[in-house]
Design a protein around this nucleic acid. Structure first.
Lengths: 104, 104
DNA sequence: CCTTTATTTCCATAATATTGGAAATATGGA
DNA sequence: TCCATATTTCCAATATTATGGAAATAAAGG
């Protein structure tokens, strides 16, 4: 991952509503939840929820699948894991962090 | 950590210049680097670097310490670790993720 | 106290993001 | 085909963020 891609992911999560949506879907597990239920649960206007779901999806943090008239959104765990790896990468220039100075 | 605090951290990192600064300081290790050297290394106007360093510090991601005429900034690893824990917390509603559906 | 160097604050400009109402689109069932 | 429901797109108002020049502050050493 490069810096640009990481900022896209971070920006997607750096917003209270979106972070709440994301965590709701992390907790919901792989099957996810339909857009309407997400909006309802978080008391959001449909347009607002849709806007944030798009942001998260475009960043690759969510997957969307159609099921009947519903669109289910679910968390993409792989993307988050890649982000976490990037954030702690190259800690202390590669020198293993001493146990007296715990780093990453 | 609550959602609000986490968005503050994420917002601080969700900007290319700031993420680059943060990673530079993660790589620099616990001793950190003086503000001027960070600005120079990243080719930033002093005011711009100062603005971003303040954002990161206010979020708690950086520590600042005066040393002579220099102000050394360094990464606060604990804050990042707390963020990582928060992001993966409560995955799949607490149900351990099956090895066939690897989550977090 | 004056000078040099390091950094920050002030400020205005420019760019980007968030919000939700209303209209458009899509899906499935009667 | 027509209707009800689910979701998205369009749009405009509002709010937030980033940038850097210039001036202010701070620290150390003559």
């Amino acid at each position: 991952m490069e810096t640009k891609a990481a900022t896209t992911l971070l920006a997607a999560l750096a917003q209270e509503t979106r972070l709440t949506i994301y965590r709701l879907l992390v907790a919901a597990g792989p099957s996810g939840l339909p857009a309407g239920q997400i909006a309802e649960q978080l008391q959001l206007a449909a347009a607002t929820a849709s806007f944030h779901l798009k942001e998260l999806s475009q960043a690759g943090l969510l997957a969307a699948r159609q099921e009947g008239r519903f669109i289910f959104y679910s968390a993409n765990y792989a993307q988050m894991n890649a982000l976490l790896a990037f954030l702690t990468e190259n800690c202390c220039g590669g020198t293993p962090c001493g146990s007296d100075v715990p780093c990453c």
